[in-house]
Design a protein around this nucleic acid. Sequence first.
DNA 1: TTGTACGCGTTATCAA
DNA 2: TTGATAACGCGTACAA
Lengths: 337, 337
Amino acid sequence: MEKKKKPRLSDVALLAGVSIGSASKALSEPDKVRPDTLARVKDAVQRLGYIADGTARALASRRSRTVGTILPTISNPIYAAFVQALQKQLAALGYHLIVASHEYDDEVELDLARGLIERGADALVLIGSEHHPRLSHLLDSAEIPTVAAWSYSPFGAHPFVGFNDRTGGQIAVRHLLGLGHRRFAILSGPTTGNERQRARISGIIETLSAHGLECPPDCRLEMPFSISSGDAAFRAVQQMAVAPTALVCCSDLLALGFMSAAAREGLRIPDQMSVTGFGDIEIGKLVHPALTTVRVPIEEIGTKTASMVVELIANPAAGTSADVEVDLAIRASTGPA
Amino acid sequence: MEKKKKPRLSDVALLAGVSIGSASKALSEPDKVRPDTLARVKDAVQRLGYIADGTARALASRRSRTVGTILPTISNPIYAAFVQALQKQLAALGYHLIVASHEYDDEVELDLARGLIERGADALVLIGSEHHPRLSHLLDSAEIPTVAAWSYSPFGAHPFVGFNDRTGGQIAVRHLLGLGHRRFAILSGPTTGNERQRARISGIIETLSAHGLECPPDCRLEMPFSISSGDAAFRAVQQMAVAPTALVCCSDLLALGFMSAAAREGLRIPDQMSVTGFGDIEIGKLVHPALTTVRVPIEEIGTKTASMVVELIANPAAGTSADVEVDLAIRASTGPA
DNA sequence: TTGTACGCGTTATCAA
DNA sequence: TTGATAACGCGTACAA
């Protein structure tokens, strides 16, 4: 019943009574063959249940129609949503997506990049623009198109798709200032190797100073990106010399973790303290109080990244970076000082 | 400075002063060559910055060292966590992971499967065991190793990795019965093409009947998997002929959505109604009240799936399915009737 | 243990 | 427009 051997293109050509070259063209460039040969080839494909061998195709054409992405982690909802959008658009453009995660280890990231290049990825999507020192060289010598997503500056000569993190920090603080807050604390993820976190912090601090407010180092907390960081963050905030009335977080996950700890410890938000997040992941709307946060168009970043990556594959010189806008989603976790 | 052409294996062999065959072996089976040839090859690789061409390797070896997975969506935290674990373990075993999502459309799923096969994936990971009628034929004729994750029965002849959904439904209900509840409602995702949802519902209903309780069709709600379904679900529950004191959800997302709507509408949980979820996604602990839910070892499913898939690639006949245990995470969303 | 030579299945070039 | 043929870069029997 079943054919023992998988049909090859030559089998299709034979059955269709055309040359193997014509069969190939019929499948890849249908407009470039006569209608009847196209029909016969298509018919033969149907009858044989022919499925092209992408591996051989990739070798001969030097294009795998695959792009690789290296993320910190897929578990963070913000990257999950990003990958979903990226994958969807890539699929629409005829590309597959290989995902890899380094869990915040840039040595691992470097290895993963090497692996993806070796694997034949046509392009790479990285997060941010600060990476292992050797990664840049690697990408250059491999001459692989790369885009820095979630970034607001190029990574080397590679274009980016992202938004102004600094602005994000600013609008969060302005909102809080408008509510009458004067004593702030900042909770961010690790800042080394993460220019986005640093930019957000800068936006926060500079807005504060513009209003004559200080944010001494003692008011700045740096914790791993995870909900469970909330506990330690809560304790640290409680022990601050000057008790803040507002906590500006550079990540939704961190904000949510803090609020969870606060609820457990009986600190009322926003009555006793206002909290803002960054990213606008879906669950921010579900918690009580709902999280006021800097809204980032995650899907748009994913979609634009996909389009740019495909453009870059077609024309490696086409590096026109794109930026998206952020704004503030005002919900219930912030209130008057 | 830069080499214009990328070095090939023959260049490595030349520089190392060995044959191309030896160079190949040195890289793939280091134990099978003399130490000094190995050293010379490695040295040449270093000096040339040689990166193997995975495409050519795949064509010659008929192994791409890539597995593909087709999910409903990566946005659902439960699949995001799954992919993260799957990818991590696969990477540890030397495999890349291509992700694709069909967003609950089995025609799309079929096309994606075809694409992954064409692409040369060594194996496929699917979710559940009910798919497009033609998918089974496709997998058979392509002879591609496949595992059904999140499933408790084989998909055709393909092994599964999952848990007893029915048991999950049972333990949720038993907990509620123990709290004195007698009037139940069920909220599930779409049941067509989703044997897991049906099994969970069965587990719920049969446990109810075992205790002499009915759950008329009027008490069963079916909504799309999404937090926003919570609003419609809330309204539907309010209009039920017999007001339930407990809502058993077959998905955390749905439970969370319902609780969000309930909070907005002033329905107090668990005082006026108890709610249980299914899956135990991380955010269930953050909402207030924290969600009582059937805990599923998501990471374990991902890890075991990865191991099984690699095993299956090595030995396609090795189909030994694996199941994991579920239990109940009792938190604050359930209370006395 | 090492080297030779062929095969993997397709695309691309070029002549007809 | 079509057909023959040379790459594509590596794995792998088989022979030495």
